[in-house]
Design a protein around this nucleic acid. Structure first.
Length: 897
RNA sequence: GGGCGAUUAGCUCAGUUGGUUAGAGCAUCUGCUUUACACGCAGGUUGUCGGGGGUUCGAGUCCCUCAUCGCCCACCA
C-alpha cells in the first residue's frame, strides 16, 4: 500500500489509468464462446464535433453498462465511431473556404473533397480524445468512420439492394429545400417554429365581371407570380358559381382558372385560396388533380427568377414579398394586412425557413415497416422508458417516403451512372442507367449522379456495418455472429425517427434469420435532454452550455460522471448545474479519505475476496459488524435489481447513502474504539476491507478512475488485474462462511443510532453540543443490556464522559428514544422555561399521533379490512407513543416541581 | 388539432405494487480541528405533495376534471 494524499487529485490518476488500460488492451472485444456476449455501438458523434453535456450523459451511461457487463463476466465490446455529418460538415468547410476567398464551386468536386478531408483530419477526432478523458472504455481498435472505405461499401451495397428491389426511386417531387445549403432535406430535418407573420387580404378581379373581385388571404404574396389557379370549396354558396370561370392574376397579369375543391376550408380567411403549385406542397397536389400548369418563379437560393417578372427578378423572397405588397397597394388590390402567427418550417443547419421546391430527388420507400413495428410491439426490442414506443409506432403508422438525396459533395455519392448522351434515361434499362457498388467497367461512357446520400442513409446501417457487413470475412474478424444483435442502445429521444426507427428497419431488411437475429439491439435506453437550470436547452448561441472538459479539469471525470448520473432519472430531462458535479467530487473525496483512514491501520491480505472472508471471525463480530455487512448485502442486491431496470440514479443514491451514512457515518466511527482492542481490531479491519472492496466494485462503472486507483492502493488488485474484470458479487462467499443478512443486528444498530442522535440533539439543545464530556443518564425501557454492551463506543460517538443506567429522574432535560429516556446532567443550569417549551412541542406531536392511531383502531372498517400486519403496526405504534407520552408528562411534572 | 411528460421543502429531485409521523442533495442557520475527510462532523429550520371532485378503512401514490409549464407530431392558405 502506498501513501495517499489528503485530498484526492483526479487528473494524474485519470491520465495514468486511461493510458494503462488502453495499453493493456482491456477494452478489446473478444469472441469468447465461454462467455455471454455484450455489445453496444456508440451513437456516432459528428467527426468534427466537440463533447457536449449531452455526450457526457449518453456516453457515461454506455460506459457504465459496458463496465458492469465486464464485471459480470460477459465478453463486452463497445464499438466507437464517428459520423461524417454531410450537410453540417459541408457547411463548415464552405464557410472556411469563403474565409480563404474560395468556394466549393470554384474548386470543383474533386478538389473540394480533398480540402474537406484535410479539414476533417485536422478538426476531426477531437471528440474521440474527449471521450477518452471521460473514461469511455471503447474498443478503439474498432473505430469506424462513416466515410471509411469499408463502411462506404456497406452504404452503397444497401443502396443497390434497395434500388434493385424497387424501394429506391428517382422522381420530381415537392421537397423541403434549404436555400442556404442549396439542398433538399428530409421531413425530419425541418423544424417547425411558430412565427409572427402577416396575413394579407387582397382581391383578384373576375375576368367576366370587370369591377368585381374575389378576396383572397395569403401569407405569401411573393408567390403570386406563380399562381396558376384560384380555388374555392364547391359547397361554398358564396363562390361555387365562379368555378370554371377565369380570374385575373395581378402580376404578371394573366388569366387563371377558378377551380373547386373540397380541400378548401370555407371558414378560413376568405374561403378563397390562391394556388401556387410550384411553391406549396398542398397546391402542388391540387395542380396534379386539376391539371394545372406549374410555374416556378424562384431560384434555388430563394431569389426570384425571370418568370416572376422584371420587377422581381433577382430579389430575395422577402424583398419580393414587400415589393408584391407594395404593387398590390398601388393597384388598389390590397384589402388588409393582419398580424398572424403560423408555423414555418426551418432548415436545421441553414437556420432559415425552408422553401417547398419541386425538384428531382431520390426517394426511399421504407422497407419492413410492419416488421419494424412488430419488433417493438412484440418486445423483441424494448424501449426504456416504454412510453417512447407510442411515438415510434405513430411515426411508423404515418411514414412517408424518405428523400435521401442531398445536393452536396461531402458524403456517399449516389452509385448511379447515366449513359452519356441519353436525354431521359430509363431507370430500369441497364443500357442507359448503371447502378452498382463498383463503378461501371467503361467509365468513359457514363456520368455519375451528382448527388450524395443523406447522412442518416449511412448511419442507419451502423449496428451491422460497424461489424463488417456485408463482407463475410470482415464480419468473421469482428465477431458479428457473436456480438450481433447488440445488447443496449443508448441515445436521445430526439433521434428516434432519424436513427433508431431506421436502424430497426435496416436490420429487418438486410440481415438474415428470424426477428431475434435481425434486430439491431435488444434494448433502447432513451436519455433525457440536458438543460440548464432555467430548463433551457443547452446551445452555443445561449452560451449556457458548459464545457465538459473544463469541468473534468476542475472536478475530475469521476465526479462529473457521478454527479450527472445522480441527477439523471430515467427518461426525464436533466437540469444541469455545476453543483451537481460538486456532489460527485465530494463523494470521490470521501471515498478517498475513508481509504486513507483504513490505511492508517495495519495492512492485511486483501488479495482476494476469499482471503478477506477468512479474516472475518464470526465469533468476534458484534452487532455493528453484522449490521454493516447486512446493509452491504442488501445494497448490492438492490443495485442488481436497479440495473435490470436501468435505474441509474437509484444506484448512485444507494451507493452514496450506504457509503457515506452507513459505512463512514456509523461503522467507521463506532469501530474506532474497537481498533484499540487487539482482539476486535482484526475483525473490524476485515469488515472495513470487505465493505471498501465491494463499494469500489459497485462504484467502478460510475467512477472508473478513482476506483481503479484505490483498488490497487488498497491491495485488492494484488495480481495486477483490473477492477473492471472483477465480479461484484460476494454474498455467496459470505454465506458459505455462515454470514448472512442479520435482521436483529440491523434493528439493534438502528436503535443505537437513534440513541446517539437523540443524545446528541439533547446536548445541542442544552448548548453543550461541542462538549466532549457530558454526563448522560438513561432510564432504559428494557434490561439496558444493549446500552451496557455498547457504552464505550457510544460515549465516543456522542461525546460523553459517562452513560449511566438509572431510574426515573427529575429536574434534568430529557429526551425519549427507542431504548429509553435520556437525561443530561447540566448541574442546575437548566433553563426550565426553554425545556418546558421544547417538551410541550414534543408532547403535542405525540398526542396528535396517539389520537389519530386510536381513531383508526376504533374504526371497525379499518380493523376488519386492513391486513393484520398493518393493524399490528398501528397497535405497536400506539403503545410506544403512549409510553413516550407518559414519560414526557413525568419529565414535565418534574421540571415544574 | 392530436399525443406525451411534468407539477412534492427556497432550489433540483427521490418516493417501486395505495399502509405507521413524506425523504435526499444543495441552500440556509447554530456549534465544532473529535484517531480519515471543512470537498468534513454534529444539530436545527423549511412541505395545506398544483386546484377541485371521486374510489377506499386508508391516497403524494388509483380514477375524473381544471390549471400552468415543457416536448413531440400534424400541408389550413
Amino acid at each position: 500500500m502506498s501513501q495517499i494524499s489528503k485530498v484526492y487529485n483526479p487528473s494524474e490518476v485519470e491520465d495514468k489509468w486511461y493510458k494503462t488500460w488502453v495499453e493493456s488492451g482491456c477494452f478489446k472485444g473478444k469472441v469468447d464462446s465461454k462467455k455471454e456476449p455484450y455489445s453496444i455501438v456508440i451513437p456516432p458523434p459528428n467527426v468534427t464535433g466537440v463533447l457536449t453535456m449531452g455526450h457526457v450523459l449518453n456516453n457515461t451511461i454506455q460506459d457504465i453498462l459496458i463496465r458492469r457487463a465486464r464485471q459480470m463476466g460477459k465478453s463486452a465490446v463497445w464499438i466507437p465511431g464517428t459520423d461524417h455529418a454531410g450537410v453540417a460538415t459541408q457547411t463548415k468547410v464552405e464557410a472556411y473556404l469563403r474565409k480563404e476567398g474560395l468556394s466549393a464551386k470554384k474548386l470543383g468536386r474533386e478538389k473540394f473533397l480533398e480540402v474537406a478531408k484535410q479539414w476533417r483530419d485536422k478538426h476531426g477526432g477531437i471528440i474521440i480524445e474527449q471521450l477518452k478523458k471521460l473514461g469511455a472504455s471503447c474498443d478503439w481498435d474498432r473505430l469506424v468512420h462513416t466515410l471509411d472505405a469499408d463502411y462506404s461499401k456497406a452504404v452503397l451495397t444497401a443502396f443497390v439492394k434497395l434500388f434493385e428491389q424497387g424501394y429506391i426511386y428517382r422522381g420530381k417531387r415537392m421537397v423541403n429545400w434549404c436555400p442556404v445549403n442549396l439542398t433538399a432535406l428530409s421531413d425530419e430535418e425541418v423544424i417547425m417554429t411558430p412565427q409572427k407573420s402577416k396575413l394579407y387580404r387582397m382581391k383578384y378581379e373576375l375576368v367576366d365581371e370587370p369591377g368585381k373581385f374575389l378576396e383572397i388571404a395569403t401569407t405569401r404574396p411573393e408567390t403570386i407570380m406563380g399562381d396558376t389557379a384560384v380555388a374555392v370549396n364547391p359547397k361554398d354558396e358564396r363562390y361555387s358559381r365562379y368555378i370554371g370561370k377565369k380570374i385575373w392574376r395581378p402580376f404578371p397579369k394573366a388569366q387563371i382558372i377558378i377551380i373547386g375543391d373540397e380541400y378548401v376550408d370555407m371558414s378560413f380567411g376568405t374561403g378563397v385560396l390562391k394556388v401556387t403549385p410550384a411553391h406549396d406542397p398542398a397546391d402542388f397536389e391540387l395542380s396534379k388533380k386539376h391539371n394545372l400548369p406549374v410555374i416556378e418563379v424562384m431560384n434555388a437560393d430563394a431569389t426570384m427568377n425571370g418568370l416572376a417578372g422584371p420587377e422581381f427578378e433577382g430579389l430575395d423572397r422577402y424583398a419580393a414579398r414587400e415589393k408584391a405588397v407594395e404593387m398590390l397597394r398601388e393597384m388598389g388590390q390590397l384589402v388588409a394586412v393582419e398580424d398572424y402567427e403560423n408555423n414555418i418550417g426551418f432548415s436545421e443547419r441553414g437556420n432559415v425557413p425552408i422553401e417547398p421546391r419541386l425538384s428531382d430527388q431520390w426517394f426511399l420507400r421504407y422497407p419492413k415497416v410492419a416488421e419494424a413495428k412488430e419488433a417493438v410491439e412484440s418486445g423483441a426490442i424494448k424501449f426504456w422508458p416504454k412510453r417512447w414506443e407510442k411515438t415510434y409506432e405513430h411515426w411508423l403508422d404515418n411514414i412517408r417516403d424518405w428523400c435521401i438525396s442531398r445536393q452536396i459533395w461531402w458524403g456517399h455519392r449516389i452509385p448511379v451512372w447515366y449513359r452519356k448522351g441519353v436525354a431521359n434515361p430509363d431507370m430500369h434499362n441497364p443500357d442507359e442507367v448503371y447502378v452498382g457498388v463498383e463503378p461501371p467497367a467503361d467509365p468513359q461512357n457514363w456520368v455519375q449522379d451528382e448527388d450524395s446520400l443523406d447522412t442518416w442513409a449511412s448511419s442507419w446501417l451502423w449496428p451491422f456495418a460497424t461489424m463488417g457487413w456485408p463482407d463475410p470475412k470482415a464480419q468473421k474478424e469482428r465477431g458479428m455472429d457473436y456480438f450481433y444483435p447488440t445488447s443496449d442502445l443508448v441515445t436521445g429521444p430526439d433521434i428516434i425517427f432519424f436513427w433508431v426507427a431506421r436502424m430497426i428497419m435496416a436490420g429487418m431488411e438486410f440481415l438474415p434469420g428470424e426477428m431475434k437475429d435481425k434486430i439491431p439491439f435488444k434494448n433502447v435506453y432513451f436519455t433525457g435532454i440536458i438543460r440548464d437550470m432555467q430548463g433551457r436547452k443547452m446551445s452555443k448561441s445561449l452560451g449556457n452550455s458548459p464545457d465538459p472538459l473544463a469541468i473534468i479539469e476542475k472536478y475530475g471525470a469521476d465526479g462529473l460522471r457521478f454527479g450527472v448520473m445522480n441527477c439523471a432519472p430515467q427518461g426525464q430531462d436533466i437540469l444541469f448545474s455545476e453543483e451537481r458535479v460538486e456532489l460527485g467530487r465530494n463523494f470521490c473525496n470521501k471515498l478517498w479519505n475513508a481509504c486513507r483512514f483504513r490505511q492508517m491501520s495495519q495492512p492485511q491480505d486483501n488479495s482476494s475476496l476469499d482471503k478477506i472472508v477468512r479474516r472475518l471471525d464470526r465469533s468476534k463480530m458484534d452487532a455493528d459488524d453484522r449490521a454493516i455487512i447486512s446493509s452491504l448485502i442488501k445494497c448490492s442486491e438492490e443495485i442488481s435489481k436497479d440495473y435490470l431496470l436501468y435505474q441509474f440514479n437509484s444506484i448512485t443514491q444507494r451507493l452514496y447513502s450506504f457509503f457515506w451514512n452507513d459505512f463512514c457515518g456509523w461503522y467507521l466511527e463506532v469501530s474506532k474504539s474497537r481498533l484499540n482492542d487487539p482482539e476486535a481490531m482484526q475483525t473490524v479491519l476485515a469488515v472495513e476491507d470487505l465493505c471498501i472492496r465491494q463499494m469500489l466494485l459497485l462504484l467502478h462503472p460510475f467512477m472508473p478512475f478513482i476506483t481503479e486507483e484505490l483498488w490497487h492502493n488498497m491491495g485488492y488488485g494484488a495480481d495486477g488485474s483490473f477492477i473492471q474484470d472483477q465480479s461484484p458479487s460476494f454474498a455467496g462467499e459470505l454465506e458459505k462462511a455462515g454470514i448472512v443478512v442479520d435482521a436483529e443486528a440491523l434493528e439493534q444498530t438502528e436503535k443505537l443510532k437513534d440513541f446517539a442522535t437523540v443524545a446528541r440533539a439533547l446536548k445541542a439543545k442544552c448548548n453543550l453540543g461541542s462538549k466532549r464530556d457530558v454526563r448522560l443518564l438513561v432510564m432504559p425501557v428494557d434490561d439496558g443490556n444493549l446500552l451496557k454492551s455498547n457504552t464505550e463506543k457510544l460515549k465516543k460517538l456522542i461525546g460523553a464522559a459517562s452513560i449511566e443506567l438509572v431510574g426515573q429522574q427529575s429536574e434534568m432535560p430529557a429526551s425519549l428514544c427507542d431504548l429509553g429516556t435520556v437525561y443530561i446532567d447540566v448541574r442546575g443550569n437548566v433553563d426550565a422555561g426553554a425545556e418546558l417549551a421544547r417538551l410541550g412541542k414534543e408532547r403535542e406531536k405525540l398526542e396528535n399521533a396517539i389520537k389519530a392511531a386510536r381513531a383508526r383502531l376504533a374504526n371497525q372498517a379499518f380493523v376488519s379490512k386492513a391486513p393484520a400486519n398493518v393493524i399490528e403496526g398501528a397497535k405497536k405504534q400506539l403503545s410506544e407513543n403512549e409510553a413516550k407520552l407518559a414519560e414526557i408528562l413525568k419529565i414535565i411534572d418534574g421540571l415544574k416541581a
